[in-house]
Design a binder for these strands. Structure first.
Lengths: 227, 227
DNA sequence: CCGGTACCTGAATCAGGTTTCAGGTTATTC
DNA sequence: GAATAACCTGAAACCTGATTCAGGTACCGG
């Protein structure tokens, strides 16, 4: 059975998975090395091709040491997804500061998302694979991103920047889905010989998407009750 | 390395993977039994939890027999995804016959997609997992669906039913992405105690999405060159 | 009913991965 | 500078599961 179970209470606290608690400076460094190595290995091999040995090798650490820090392959994977989630959201919100209108903020948020995707193509893959490795952590990922959106949309509806007849929750998920598939198709699939994706979306695509979003969110001039 | 390689030339032809060719009535029946069993097993266990033994057991067939029909676990998985793709597209185009306007057709197509998703939640999972099992076949899946959309959008732009400033390709991918994430969130995640998703989207969600799409696609009353 | 072809079978082989553990090594404390 | 605690290590025990293969069994034409 695939685990739809709950996540560990606190996936980010720095404690030994064996002795239970503290973790000295040396210990912390080792844990970080493991996480970084895991990021690279999961990213370019996928969850199942990855192995603990590959991770510890890349980290330059003994195999047995792994189990001093993480209970299992799945545990370190979950910790990684949560870390990536934090970083994506940060990229998005940084991109949105200093914007004036809601529409502008929307565009900037997407731009931040795409920039992050382009810069870390492999990380994107890790997150998507979470659907099959740890559904609970994937839900957390999506839900956290959507929450920010939804809030912004509600606020913009109050000021009249966004069509009041849209349902904020549905709209937020729709926008996420768009961004994800567009990113996949026009960044991750458009790799050069070295497998690197372009740094940004082609203007045609970005503009096409911006137009689409503008249309979708903008308040309608006429009133409701169409033909 | 994950295989981004090409698919076999013809993944649907009915031939023995050993002797090379024909396949009698008995052989065909066995092949079909294997595919049906694979569908169930992959669907509720995922690719890696699934095993050839589980598939042949469920099919009521000897383990060794599997290799008379498929080269490997990956091969049967790909055959399955291609089959599902055919069925989704059929569900969508059936839903779209007898529609008048483009917007109506769009809505109907989505409804067909969602109905299919609700009826075969597990199959949806199989398709998404293809991203990690066989990227090539996943691209095929998405690309085939998008092609239909794109063509429809172009036609509707000519008749003026759809905003001429939208890029049809980008728009088609955006719509796909929306549909996929909305389906995931509001169907697959909304399961009852038995793990069954609701048969249809909640009206709030479906209407919210319809409004969003209407807004996005409708030709703008004003002309271009905004403020 | 006989020969032959097409199919079927599952124990055995083989490859690879996770996790444990008994025994070091490094850092810190007194 | 010895004792103690915190860390580290990788060979070996164990699993699991894909794939092979030598030996059947079902069906069909004659």
């Amino acid at each position: 059975m695939t685990a739809y179970g709950e996540l560990a209470d606190d996936t980010s606290e720095l404690v030994s998975s064996v002795t239970g608690r503290p973790l000295t400076k040396r210990g912390e460094a080792t844990r970080r090395k493991l996480l970084e190595a895991a990021e690279e290995v999961f990213a370019d091999q996928g969850y199942h091709e990855a192995s603990i040995v590959k991770i510890t090798d890349r980290a330059g650490i003994g195999l047995g040491t792994f189990y001093l820090y993480f209970d299992s392959k799945q545990t370190i994977f979950e910790a990684l997804v949560i870390d990536l989630n934090r970083r994506v959201r940060q990229a998005m919100s940084e991109a949105m500061v200093d914007t004036q209108s809601r529409l502008e903020a929307e565009r900037a948020g997407f731009a931040g998302f795409f920039r992050f995707t382009a810069e870390h193509p492999a990380l994107y893959r890790v997150v998507r694979e979470a659907e099959f490795v740890s559904p609970a952590v994937l839900r957390l990922h999506y839900t956290r991103i959507v929450e920010g959106y939804e809030e912004g949309l509600r606020a913009a509806q109050l000021t009249g920047d966004v069509d009041r007849q849209l349902d904020p929750e549905t709209t937020a998920w729709a926008l996420m889905g768009m961004g994800e598939l567009i990113g996949m198709r026009f960044l991750l699939w458009e790799t050069d010989e070295q497998g690197r994706p372009p740094a940004t979306l082609a203007p045609k695509v970005f503009d096409g998407m911006a137009r689409f979003i503008d249309n979708a969110l903008a308040p309608r001039p006429e009133n409701e009750g169409g033909h």
